[in-house]
Simulated scan of single mutants.
Amino acid sequence: MSWILLACAGVLEIAFAFGMKWSAGFSRLWPSLFAVLTGLSSIMLLTLSLRALPVGTAYAVWTGIGAAGTAVLGMALLGEPASPARIGCVALILCGVIGLKLASAGVS
C-alpha cells in the first residue's frame, strides 16, 4: 500500500510542476490553486508512505517519478527538446527508480 501511495504522490508531483508552469509565477488564480493543491497532496501522500518505507528510498523514488514524468510530458505536450541525451537521462532516472523499488522488495 505504501508503494501505491508513493506512486500517486509522484504523479501529483508531476501535476504540481505543470500547475506551476500554467500559473505563470502564481499570477493566475485557478492554475495557482491547482499547483498548491497538487503540491500539498503530493507531500501528504509522500508523508503517509514514509510510515513504512525508508526515507531515502521513498524520497528518491518520489523525486524520480516527478522529474522523469515532468520531463517526458514536457517533451510530449509542450514541445520541449527530445534529444537522445535527454531521453537517455530520463531512462537512467527510471532505471534508478525501478532499482530502488527492487532493492526494497522486503519493505511494504
Rank of each mutant, 00 (worst) to 15 (best):
V97C: 08
W3V: 11
S27L: 10
A7D: 00
I43P: 03
I98V: 15
G69W: 01
L78M: 13
G25R: 02
L94T: 08
A35K: 00
G69C: 10
A15P: 05
A9Q: 02
L29E: 08
I4M: 13
A85M: 14
V11G: 07
G99Q: 03
P84M: 09
Y59P: 08
L46T: 04
M1W: 13
S83V: 11
A105M: 07
G74M: 00
G19N: 10
L50R: 06
V55N: 09
A17F: 02
L5K: 10
C8L: 15
G39K: 01
W22A: 15
P54Q: 13
S41M: 07
G69K: 03
S2T: 12
W3R: 12
L45C: 11
T63N: 06
Y59Q: 07
W62H: 06
P84A: 13
V90H: 02
M20N: 11
F34M: 13
L53Y: 12
T38M: 05
F26C: 10
W22G: 07
A67I: 15
V55L: 15
V61K: 00
G25L: 09
A85Y: 11
G25K: 04
M44K: 04
A71W: 03
F34R: 08
G64F: 00
S32P: 13
S104F: 01
S41D: 05
I14L: 10
T70K: 01
L50A: 11
L29D: 05
T63S: 14
S27D: 13
S23K: 06
A67C: 08
F26H: 07
A52T: 13
T47V: 11
T57V: 15
G66Y: 01
G25H: 03
G66P: 04
A68F: 05
P84R: 09
L102A: 12
A71D: 06
T70A: 07
S108T: 13
L48R: 12
C95M: 15
G25P: 02
L45H: 09
A52V: 08
G106Y: 04
L48S: 06
F26N: 06
G88N: 07
S108C: 10
L92W: 09
A24S: 14
P31F: 00
A35Q: 02
S27A: 14
A85Q: 14
E80C: 02
L77S: 11
L77T: 12
A60P: 03
W30P: 05
I4L: 15
